[in-house]
Design a binder for these strands. Structure first.
Length: 215
DNA sequence: TAGGCCATCTGGTCCT
DNA sequence: AGGACCAGATGGCCTA
């Protein structure tokens, strides 16, 4: 999130309009380098189109941001690229589908349904600290750049990597609770630890109704 | 310093 | 005609 704020404040390339022409130097028009072009559009029209494009891309970025915060287990200030967000959302959907089709953890464990890959669902815990991590608590300097740096649930459920709260979750897991309930419980513990209130799995499933808000 | 990620600008294309 | 959408290109920032 901090990164996104920085980007908003970051100075971007400015338009070089000299005597009604546009310098193409430094922009994406190598075929127009070292010469000026006469604008087909009036500057006012071009500026308006640019503004619309910026607004459109902001909507797209907000949609990515909302998608990221909709994913349970992903703190809102986690640094995820757009590509990572799409990958996580995709694997999360696949995970939910597997849970629905196969009927919960009693018949399909996270281990079997989720091969240990760097960008798989669920993921949550940071490898370095072996504990639940919120990048807002580390001043943003040492937060993982992306989920690539993080464990998935399978990693978390192995004894050697467990914090007390994770062992508690492991107990829940061994009791063959429904997987969604397990993850909800895990997430509630995380919320209690951090004093925050992110959406849980169940509410995450409601994100479809939020697309209208993206505008 | 290289590579990744992002915002921005721009012209082309499609749609209303 | 005007707006939405898209892809290519570029520079800035950040991290390993």
């Amino acid at each position: 999130m901090l990164k996104e704020v920085k980007y908003l404040k970051m100075p971007r390339r400015r338009k070089d309009i000299i005597n009604g022409t546009v310098s193409s130097v430094g922009r994406g028009y190598p075929h127009l380098q070292n010469r000026s072009i006469v604008m087909k559009e009036k500057p006012q029209q071009r500026n308006a189109a640019n503004a619309r494009e910026r607004a459109r891309m902001r909507v797209l970025s907000r949609a990515f941001c909302r998608l990221k915060t909709t994913l349970p287990w992903v703190p809102a200030d986690t640094k995820l690229s757009k590509l990572d967000t799409l990958r996580l959302a995709t694997t999360y959907i696949g995970h939910l589908r597997a849970v629905l089709v196969e009927g919960g953890v009693g018949r399909t464990s996270p281990v079997s349904s989720h091969p240990v890959v760097s960008m798989s669902w669920p993921f949550m815990f940071n490898k370095s600290g072996n504990e639940l991590k919120n990048s807002s608590s580390d001043s943003g300097s040492d937060s993982p750049r992306s989920s690539i740096d993080q464990f998935n649930l399978h990693d978390c459920l192995t004894e050697e990597h467990q914090t007390p709260s994770q062992r508690q979750l492991s107990d829940l897991h061994s009791n063959s609770q429904d997987e969604i309930s397990l993850m909800d419980s895990n997430y509630q513990i995380y919320q209690q630890q951090k004093g925050i209130n992110y959406s849980n799995i169940s509410s995450g499933l409601n994100y479809c109704g939020n697309f209208a808000e993206l505008q």
